[in-house]
Nucleic acid binder design. Sequence first.
DNA 1: GTCTATATTAGGATAGAC
DNA 2: GTCTATCCTAATATAGAC
Lengths: 211, 211
Amino acid sequence: MGKVKTRDRILDVSLQLFNRLGEPNVTTLLISDELEISPGNLYYHFKSKSDIVEELYGRFDHEMNDLLAVPEDAEITLDQQNFFLHLLFETVARYRFIYQDLVNVLSRYDALQSPFRRLLKRKQKAFRTICESFRHQEMMQISGEELAALCEQLTLTACYWTSYDSLSHLQERDRVDPGRGVYQMLRLLLPYLGEPEREQVQLISRAYLAD
Amino acid sequence: MGKVKTRDRILDVSLQLFNRLGEPNVTTLLISDELEISPGNLYYHFKSKSDIVEELYGRFDHEMNDLLAVPEDAEITLDQQNFFLHLLFETVARYRFIYQDLVNVLSRYDALQSPFRRLLKRKQKAFRTICESFRHQEMMQISGEELAALCEQLTLTACYWTSYDSLSHLQERDRVDPGRGVYQMLRLLLPYLGEPEREQVQLISRAYLAD
DNA sequence: GTCTATATTAGGATAGAC
DNA sequence: GTCTATCCTAATATAGAC
C-alpha cells in the first residue's frame, strides 16, 4: 500500500544502472532522469554520488558478512555448501558493479578499500573452513599445499566469475544466472572429493548446467 | 644512440600510468606532466586519448596473438607449456590496465570490444588445444565435461589472476610477478595428469612458489 | 616538434523558489 | 520533498606563436 520512498527508489535504480552500464558511466543526471525526478531532488536525499555508492556497498557488505558467518567447527553437509554457494553467487551478481570495475571503484571511493579487503579475507577463510570440515569428515582428501591453492582459486572464481561469464553471455544483461558459477565451483572441488561424494556432486553440478 | 621518439615515450609512460593508477584515473594532463612535455605537444602526436589506449591495446593484441599461435596437432611438452604460461602471464601483467577495469574500458573504447572478444575465444581455444594434446599423449586423463570446465577455469584465471593477486599484494605496484599465476594454472591441471607427469608438474610448480 | 593560452563540455553539486 | 536555474571544477581538445 504505502508507496516506496524516493530515497529507496534512488538506491534501487542506481544499483540497476550501475550493474547494467558500469558505475563510472552512470551520472547523477542519468539516475534522476530514469526516476523522472530532478537532479536537485536526488541531492536532497543524498549529499553526493559517493554516498549512494557507499550505501549500496554497505548493503552488499552486510549481506555477504551474514552469508559468510560459517560456523567454525560444524560438520558441513554437501547440501548446505550448495545452498551457500548459490546464495553467494546470487548476491555477488546483484552487486556485480563492484567487481566489474574493481580498481576504479576502489580507487575513487576510498571508504570501500578496507571493508572490501576485509571481506575478501573473510571469503577466503569461509572456503577454508568448509574444505577443512569436509576433510575432517573424510569426504575430502587434500594436502595443505593443495588446500591453499584450491581456496585461492575458489575465492578468485567467487569474485570474478560473474564478470567473466557476462563477457560471453552479454545478451539480457539484467538477469544473471548464478547456476553456472556454482557449477564451476563444484568442478573445482570435485577432484579432491572421495568416491561416494564425487558421484553426488557430479549429479548436483550437472543439474546446474541444465538451466 | 638515437634518443627515443616522443611518440614512443608517450606510449610507454601512458602504459605505466594506466597500470599503476587505472586507465580512467589517468588524464592527458597527467601523462604530459610525467613526461615534462606540454599537453599541446601530446595532442600533436595523438589526436585523442582514445588513440593512445587503442594503440596500446593493439600492441597487446598483437603480442597475445603471436603467443597464442599454438600448433594444432603438435605434441606439446610440459616444458613448452610452462614457457607458454610464463610468457602469457608476463604479457597480461604488462597490460593489466585492460583487465583491471574491463567493463569500463570496453564500454568507453568501443573499438576494443570485438578484438577483445576474439582474443578471449582464441585464448580459450589455445588451452583446449594444449589439454587435448596432453590427452592425446596420454599424459592427461580427462572427460569431455571436465575438459570444458577446466578450460573455462584456465581462461578465467589467465584473465583475472593478475588483478586478483594485486589485491593481496598491493605493495610495489609496478613489478608484477607472473610466477604465482603460473603456479595457480599448474595447480588446476594437476588433478587430471597421469602419475609420472603429476610428480614433475608438482616439482615445477613448487619452484614457482619459491620466488 | 614544442610551447602557452584558451575553448568546450560534462559531471558533480548548491541556492532558493514552490 | 521537489523543482529550476546555476555554479564549479576537471578533463579533453584546439589555436596559434615560436
